[in-house]
């Protein structure tokens, strides 16, 4: 039996899984946390149970399909009142790539209270363990009637040595200075995780990490590298913070050097991609609107 409190042998904490219609990615990785020694939930003093009544922590996967709803709600209702519910992967939170289907009835929080989110698609086992750790802390605090404390080394900390030597595809990062407002990222995003807003002084990009499926296609098609994949996979958070998990940047308008119309200037990265070594003549193009650019190009003598 696992020992999860120093000095006292205690009953292991029961983990109970509910699949609401997932692609099985999160479920297969959860299976790893019961079968592979390095990721075994035993190290957290937990064990998996097949009985809803023994659930101290409920791990929910999938976008919640219409057909699975009845059984999911029945199972969740059969778990003890004081359990902690963890949404595993982005599907329960936002539907992920399956949002807005006729056959999907999420998000999960519409039907039952969620305590912790573990984004990822699927989250790596290390991230699953961090999410379970967070749930254990909430459980402890509830029992003691105290506020759950933030776990030490909470954000952007690499895991313990030996488990984290690989560059996992994690949180996307946005560099507004490199963005040229082409919106290819939004075009290729299957999960609808990217929004552009046109404001008075700027164009604003918002990327919601709870919708993102971390495929990195936005970054692949981004012509300037404004969007890039980071190795930051520690994204677990309290469900109350679900809508604050964003990446955001403002791309300011500047007046066209020719006519003064507000435009998004071409980023240096774009000029480098297009011309390799832009000369001062080409550099001038970046502050011109398309109309003025054409006018200038025709006026420029051929070399």
């Amino acid at each position: 039996m696992a020992i999860h409190e120093p000095g006292s042998a205690a009953e292991p904490v029961g983990l109970f899984r509910i699949n609401t219609g997932s692609c099985n990615g999160c479920d297969v990785e959860l299976a790893v946390t019961s079968a592979v020694a390095e990721f075994d939930v035993e190290q957290l003093g937990c064990r998996y149970t097949e009985s809803a009544h023994e659930a101290d922590i409920v791990l929910v996967t999938g976008p919640l399909t219409v057909r699975a709803r009845e059984e999911v709600l029945r199972l969740h209702a059969a778990t003890p009142r004081d359990k902690v519910t963890v949404a595993v992967g982005v599907c329960p939170v936002s539907g992920g790539v399956f949002r807005d289907s006729y056959a999907v009835d999420g998000p999960l929080e519409r039907h039952l209270p969620v305590d912790v989110n573990v984004p990822g698609c699927p989250p790596r086992p290390q991230a699953l363990l961090e999410g379970i750790r967070e749930a254990l802390e909430i459980r402890r605090a509830r029992r003691e009637g105290s506020e759950p404390t933030r776990l030490p080394g909470d954000r952007k900390q690499p895991g313990k040595p030996g488990t984290d030597n690989f560059p996992a595809r994690g949180r996307l990062s946005f560099d507004a200075a490199a963005c040229v407002d082409c919106r290819m990222c939004r075009h290729v995003c299957a999960a609808g995780a990217i929004r552009f807003e046109e404001r008075d002084e700027s164009v604003r990009l918002t990327l919601w990490h709870n919708s993102c499926v971390f495929c990195g296609l936005c970054s692949h098609y981004c012509p300037t590298g404004a969007l890039s994949v980071t190795g930051d996979w520690r994204l677990d958070h309290r469900a109350t913070d679900a809508f604050r998990q964003i990446e955001r940047g403002e791309v300011p308008y500047a007046p066209c050097a020719g006519c003064g119309e507000p435009i998004i200037p071409a980023a240096p990265q774009l000029l480098h991609a297009a011309f390799r070594r832009p000369n001062p003549e080409i550099e001038k193009l970046k502050n011109l609107c398309p109309t003025c650019r054409q006018r200038m190009s025709i006026g420029v003598p051929r070399r």
Partner: peptide, 28 residues
Amino acid sequence: QVHRGMEHLVMRRNLYQNITLLERLCSL
């Protein structure tokens, strides 16, 4: 139970989005 209406979703996503959507049909 796992019917997510994916053949319907793919017609409302462009060919690029469908690369990622289809990868999430089944993780195995």
